[in-house]
Nucleic acid binder design. Structure first.
Length: 435
RNA sequence: GGUCCUGUGGUGCAGCUUGGAGUGCACGUCGGCCUGUCAAGCCGAAGGUCGCGGGUUCAAAUCCCGUCAGGACCGCCA
C-alpha cells in the first residue's frame, strides 16, 4: 500500500516502475499482445503484456473476469498510440486479489431498480463516484460558510418520544418496554440549542419520514441540512443567510466541478445572484393563474405543476433559477411558525424552490411561550407530549428562525438527475430496505 | 392511499395491435481465430417455466380475468 501509485498521477511517472491497485475494466486478449484497462478511484489506464515476454502473466490475463481486483506492477511508458491518456504500463507482474464471478449482474444500461439491487457494483462507475465527490464538496462548502459565521455543529438524537412536526408520519421502534420514534426532523433540538444560547447551529444528518410516497423525489430516510439562527428580526434574516449559503456552495462547486458536471451529466451549474427573487404565495398563485394553470389544492398551497409554472414565471420575469415563496397561511404551516404581527392568518415562513422543486421550508419560530401554547391548542395538538419542548421557551429564549434543506434534492437538481435515488448512496423507500 | 404503465436467457430491448414451433437485436458469459488493441474485430456455443395462477381457443409471450412485483404521476413532504 505504501508504494501504491494512483492512475491519475501516471503522466508524471514516465519510465518509472509503479504499483497499481484497481479493478479490471476491460480485457483485450489477442494472440501476440494483451491489454487490460485497469480502473482505480482516480481513473483508468491501459496495461500491456507481450505474450512472449511473460507466459505467466499471459495465463493470468486469459483467466481474468471483469471487475476482478488486481495488483499490477509495471513500467510507465509514454505511447501516442494509446488513446487512453497517451501512456500505458508494461506489466512486470500481475496478481489477482479477488476474482469476480463471470457476468456482472448489471451494466451501464441497466434499469435504476436493477442498479439499486447491485448498488455496490453500480457505484464503481466513475460517473457515480463523481456524484459523491460533488456531495462531499457541497457539504464542505456549507461548512466553510458556517465556520466563517460562527455556527456550532449539532448532533441531535434520532430516537424521540414523539413527533417533531405535525404532518409527516413517524416510524415507531421498540424501545425496551415502550416505544420510540425515529426523528422526522431535528427541529425541536435545533430550537433547544437556541434556548441553550448556542446562537447559530447547523446539522447534516438523517431524517425519517414514514410517508408512503411513490415519487422520484421522496425517500423514507434522507439527509437533511438544518440551520437555526438566534436573534433574527424576521424570516427575512433566515432567507438572507440561506441564499448566501447556497450561492457560496454553487460558486465553490461550479469552480471545481462545473466542467465535469456539464460533460458527465449535461447540466450547466449557474452561480445565482443574491438576493434571490421573493414572491408571496398569494402573488405566486395569481401569477400561475395568469399563465393558464389553476392550482387544485383546496388548502391553497402550491402543487407540483404550480411549482413548475412558478419556476417558469420567475425565470421569464427575473431570469433566476431560485425563488423564495413567502407568507404562507397558518393552515398549511406547523404550529411553531411565527405569525405576522399585522396579519395573524399568515406566517413568517418561506419555501425555497430551485428549478421548480421545493428544497427548503423555513420560518421564524414562535419563541413566546404563551403565544406558542395558544398555537398548539389552535392546531388541536395534545400538549402532554410537547411539555418538554414548551419548557425550552419558559426560561428566556432568543427570537430565532431557521430552515431545513433536502441534501438529496439539492444534488438531484444540481446534477440534473431525474430521481433522488441516483444521488443517494443507499436509497430507502416504501419498497426498498436492501441492500 | 388513488390513477396509469411495465414484467420476455445474466443485462437492456423488440415481438403483443391482427394468436400459429421460445422468434430477433445489442451487451455480457464460454470456446476458437486474430502482429498494438483501445466501443477491438471475426467465427461458433451455451444460457428461457415469456412474473405467477386460471380462462378462451385446435393452438397463448400475444386475447380475457385474477394475483404478485416494480415504476411514473397525484396526494403527503425536504
Amino acid at each position: 500500500m505504501d508504494q501504491r501509485t494512483m492512475v491519475s498521477t501516471l503522466a508524471g511517472a514516465a519510465g518509472k516502475e509503479v504499483t497499481l491497485y484497481g479493478w479490471v475494466d476491460v480485457v483485450r486478449d489477442q494472440k501476440a499482445v494483451q491489454f487490460i484497462v485497469l480502473r482505480d478511484e482516480s481513473g483508468k489506464v491501459q496495461l500491456v503484456n507481450d505474450r512472449d515476454a511473460s507466459a505467466g502473466i499471459a495465463e493470468t490475463i486469459a483467466g481474468l473476469t471483469l471487475d476482478s481486483t488486481v495488483r499490477a506492477i509495471g513500467t510507465v511508458e509514454l505511447n501516442d498510440r494509446v488513446k487512453l491518456g497517451g501512456l500505458e504500463v508494461r506489466l512486470a507482474s500481475l496478481e489477482v486479489l479477488s476474482s469476480a464471478a463471470p457476468a456482472l449482474p448489471l451494466n451501464a444500461e441497466s434499469a435504476l431498480d436493477t442498479r439499486l439491487d447491485w448498488r455496490f457494483v453500480d457505484l464503481r462507475r466513475p460517473e457515480n463516484r463523481l456524484i459523491f465527490e460533488i456531495q462531499t464538496a457541497v457539504e464542505q462548502s456549507f461548512r466553510r460558510t458556517w465556520q466563517a459565521d460562527g455556527f456550532l455543529e449539532l448532533h441531535s438524537p434520532k430516537l424521540m418520544a414523539g413527533a417533531s412536526e405535525s404532518g409527516a408520519e413517524l416510524f415507531r421502534v421498540d424501545y425496551f418496554d415502550t416505544s420510540a420514534y425515529l426523528a422526522q426532523s431535528p427541529q425541536f433540538y435545533k430550537q433547544m440549542a437556541m434556548a441553550a444560547g448556542f446562537g447559530r447551529v447547523f446539522e447534516i444528518g438523517p431524517v425519517f419520514r414514514a410517508n408512503p410516497s411513490f415519487t422520484s423525489r421522496h425517500d423514507t430516510e434522507f439527509t437533511s441540512v438544518d440551520v437555526e439562527i438566534s436573534w433574527v428580526e424576521s424570516h427575512e434574516d433566515v432567507m438572507a443567510f440561506e441564499e448566501r449559503l447556497v450561492a457560496n456552495m454553487l460558486a465553490d462547486v461550479s469552480g471545481v466541478f462545473g466542467e465535469r458536471i456539464r460533460e458527465t451529466f449535461g447540466t450547466e451549474v449557474r452561480v445565482p445572484t443574491v438576493p434571490f427573487p421573493r414572491i408571496s404565495l398569494a402573488d405566486a398563485l395569481q401569477a400561475i393563474r395568469a399563465r393558464g394553470y389553476e392550482v387544485r389544492r383546496e388548502a391553497g398551497d402550491l402543487d407540483p405543476e404550480g411549482e413548475r409554472q412558478l419556476a417558469a414565471y420567475i425565470q421569464e420575469t427575473a431570469g433566476h433559477e431560485f425563488v423564495f415563496v413567502t407568507d404562507y397561511p397558518v393552515s398549511v404551516r406547523p404550529f411553531y411558525h411565527m405569525r405576522q404581527a399585522g396579519n395573524p392568518e399568515l406566517t413568517k415562513s418561506f419555501d425555497l424552490l430551485w428549478k421548480g422543486l421545493e428544497i427548503t421550508t423555513g420560518a421564524q419560530r414562535e419563541h413566546r411561550p404563551e403565544q406558542l401554547v395558544s398555537q398548539v391548542r389552535e392546531k388541536g395538538i395534545p400538549e402532554e407530549g410537547l411539555a418538554y419542548y414548551l419548557d425550552f421557551f419558559r426560561y428566556g429564549c432568543p427570537p430565532h428562525g431557521g430552515f431545513g434543506l433536502g441534501l438529496t434534492r439539492v444534488l438531484m437538481i444540481l446534477l440534473g438527475m431525474a430521481n433522488v435515488r441516483e444521488v443517494t448512496f443507499l436509497y430507502r423507500g416504501p419498497n426498498r430496505l436492501f441492500p
